Simulated assay, not measured.
Amino acid sequence: MHIWFLGTGAGRPNKHRNVSSIALQLPEPCCDWWLFDAGEATQHQLMKTPLKLSKLTTIFVTHLHGDHIYGLPGLISTRSFDGGITPLRLIGPRGLRRYIETVFEISGTTLDYELQFIELDEEDGQLVFEDERFTVVASTLIHRVPCFGYRIVEQDQPGKLLVDKLMQLGVAAGPQYGLLKQGHDITLQNGTTIYANEVTAPALPGRIVTILGDTTPSPNALELSIGADLLVHEATFSEGMEEKAHLFGHSTTIEAASTASEAGASILVMTHFSGRYHNEDLPKLEEEAKRLFGGQTVAATDLKCIEIKRRE
């Protein structure tokens, strides 16, 4: 599983960074991916990555400010030209559907696939997505407009079969391997019972990824981040600018670090930087956060890709 930062700036693009967009590349074998927000020129950023629009299955929108959604209509339209024929889910605040449908109606845009909208109520802890691999929970944050954070939880994966041990026990390769892999005990023709937990390695723990939209420090931001393997938290301003940050519904580096530390996250990735900061300033912003957060701290740059590893 990898996370790509397509845009790490706040408000408007500049020479150093594009506006907000994050791609979450899901693990094999499916290799599909999800998009979180799409500021303008997001599809231009995607062209610099190996991600294909035809493999995009879900777009999560944190809120409806322009720097998070102005890239959506073009990207959704281009997906038809890139071979996208499967349905595309759009999950986000109320008004998202009206925004997209209005743009497409006025521009006469048609698609070769179905858009499936899920508009969220301003509730906490709502389950917004679930399949056999992942669940996604959304909660409201504190911003100037309705805004959400998302907690992505991967299901634990069965451990590998201990094939050498099975061969020693006289279990031939075949359907019985599948039953044991699924956790079912089996009985051989000679009456011997093979217990699944004795011939499989420990389960692989699922990963937890938390992606927060724009927010000042809030209880929901903390709750969504508990135990996260990777936490994406905005850090629009540097330490000491808390008053200005809160005036516009944002956070500082030290506040992002405080949430990560209290939540017990493993990796903190800060993003959504004000245009006043150049890339040369990012090491200083990292150091501010590191004084409070003991885990790995990263100030994201555009097109940065981070592997999200499983816990031991």
Rank of each mutant, 00 (worst) to 15 (best):
residue 271 T to S: 13
residue 148 F to T: 01
residue 101 E to Y: 00
residue 46 L to N: 04
residue 157 Q to K: 10
residue 18 N to L: 09
residue 294 G to Q: 12
residue 132 E to V: 10
residue 35 L to Q: 04
residue 304 K to C: 07
residue 253 T to G: 09
residue 213 G to W: 03
residue 109 T to I: 05
residue 86 T to C: 04
residue 118 I to Y: 13
residue 221 A to H: 03
residue 146 P to K: 06
residue 287 E to G: 08
residue 122 E to Y: 04
residue 125 G to R: 05
residue 121 D to F: 04
residue 279 N to L: 14
residue 260 A to R: 00
residue 305 C to E: 13
residue 31 C to N: 13
residue 253 T to L: 12
residue 289 A to F: 04
residue 111 L to R: 04
residue 277 Y to V: 06
residue 186 I to K: 01
residue 53 L to Y: 07
residue 69 I to M: 01
residue 238 S to W: 00
residue 84 G to E: 07
residue 236 T to S: 07
residue 193 T to P: 05
residue 261 S to E: 13
residue 51 L to P: 02
residue 109 T to F: 02
residue 22 I to T: 15
residue 225 S to E: 07
residue 240 G to I: 05
residue 58 T to I: 12
residue 270 M to Q: 10
residue 56 L to P: 10
residue 95 G to D: 13
residue 183 G to R: 00
residue 236 T to R: 02
residue 256 A to G: 12
residue 309 K to G: 04
residue 21 S to P: 01
residue 218 S to P: 14
residue 187 T to C: 02
residue 208 I to C: 11
residue 275 G to S: 15
residue 210 T to H: 03
residue 110 T to S: 08
residue 28 E to A: 15
residue 26 L to N: 08
residue 14 N to F: 09
residue 104 F to L: 06
residue 162 L to F: 15
residue 286 E to G: 05
residue 161 L to I: 15
residue 306 I to C: 11
residue 268 L to E: 01
residue 196 A to K: 06
residue 228 A to V: 15
residue 185 D to H: 06
residue 28 E to M: 10
residue 70 Y to H: 10
residue 249 G to D: 15
residue 193 T to E: 07
residue 43 Q to L: 04
residue 145 V to K: 11
residue 7 G to A: 10
residue 23 A to G: 13
residue 66 G to T: 12
residue 48 K to A: 10
residue 86 T to I: 12
residue 199 V to Y: 02
residue 282 L to D: 03
residue 58 T to L: 11
residue 246 H to P: 03
residue 287 E to D: 15
residue 112 D to Q: 13
residue 248 F to C: 08
residue 62 T to Q: 14
residue 86 T to G: 02
residue 104 F to D: 09
residue 51 L to N: 00
residue 242 E to K: 15
residue 7 G to C: 09
residue 49 T to C: 07
residue 69 I to K: 00
residue 281 D to P: 03
residue 98 R to W: 04
residue 250 H to A: 11
residue 59 I to G: 03
residue 84 G to W: 00
residue 58 T to F: 10
residue 6 L to V: 08
residue 83 G to I: 13
residue 253 T to N: 14
residue 4 W to K: 03
residue 279 N to P: 02
residue 208 I to A: 04
residue 278 H to M: 06
residue 219 P to L: 11
residue 216 T to P: 03
residue 126 Q to S: 15
residue 241 M to R: 07
residue 136 V to K: 06
residue 24 L to V: 15
residue 187 T to E: 10
residue 285 L to I: 12
residue 5 F to A: 08
residue 147 C to P: 09
residue 122 E to Q: 13
residue 291 R to V: 10
residue 117 F to I: 10
residue 297 T to K: 00
residue 98 R to D: 09
residue 182 Q to M: 14
residue 177 Y to C: 03
residue 5 F to P: 01
residue 284 K to Q: 10
residue 8 T to K: 00
residue 53 L to P: 01
residue 301 T to E: 14
residue 30 C to F: 11
residue 75 L to Q: 07
residue 306 I to S: 03
residue 214 D to R: 00
residue 100 I to E: 08
residue 235 A to P: 13
residue 193 T to I: 12
residue 88 L to M: 11
residue 107 S to A: 13
residue 99 Y to L: 12
residue 33 W to E: 10
residue 301 T to D: 04
residue 254 I to Q: 07
residue 257 A to S: 06
residue 67 D to V: 09
residue 124 D to R: 01
residue 160 K to D: 14
residue 225 S to W: 07
residue 113 Y to I: 15
residue 54 S to P: 02
